[in-house]
C-alpha cells in the first residue's frame, strides 16, 4: 500500500468520525468541531487523489491541491460564522444549545 492510499483511507475514516460526532453530539460547539474533522477528512481524500495523479515532475496534481486550499478557506469562514452564532445564542440564553430535538433532526440522515 502506498502513502497516497494510506492517507486516503485515513481521510475516509475521518469522514466517518466527523459524521458520527456531528450526528451524536448535541452541543453546538462540538458539532462545529466535528464538522471541521469531517471537512479535513474530505480534504485528505482530495490530497490522495492529487498525490496518486503525480506526473510531469510534480509531487501531485496541482488542480485538486488548489481546490483544497479554496475549500479550507471556505470551511474556516463557515466555522467563524457558526461560532459567532453559538456565542450570540449563548449571550441571549445563558447557555448554548439548539433545542432538544436537534439530535433527532440530524439523525434524519440515518433514515433516508
Amino acid at each position: 500500500m502506498n502513502a497516497a492510499t494510506l492517507f486516503g483511507l485515513c481521510g475516509a475514516a475521518l469522514v466517518g468520525i466527523g459524521l458520527y460526532g456531528l450526528i451524536t453530539n448535541p452541543e453546538p460547539l462540538r458539532k462545529i468541531l466535528a464538522f471541521n474533522l469531517l471537512g479535513s477528512g474530505v480534504f485528505l481524500l482530495f490530497g490522495m487523489i492529487a498525490r496518486r495523479a503525480a506526473a510531469a515532475g510534480l509531487g501531485g496534481d496541482p488542480v485538486p491541491q488548489a481546490m483544497v486550499i479554496t475549500a479550507i478557506v471556505v470551511a474556516f469562514a463557515a466555522t467563524a460564522m457558526a461560532i459567532a452564532l453559538v456565542q450570540r445564542l449563548a449571550d441571549e440564553t445563558g447557555r448554548a444549545s439548539i433545542s432538544s430535538d436537534s439530535s433527532d433532526a440530524v439523525d434524519g440522515e440515518g433514515k433516508s
Partner: peptide
C-alpha cells in the same frame, strides 16, 4: 438564532 444555527449546520453538512 436557534433556527439559523440549525440551518447552518444542516447546510454545512450538505455542502461537505
Amino acid at each position: 438564532l436557534q433556527a439559523a444555527l440549525r440551518y447552518l449546520l444542516f447546510a454545512l453538512l450538505g455542502s461537505i
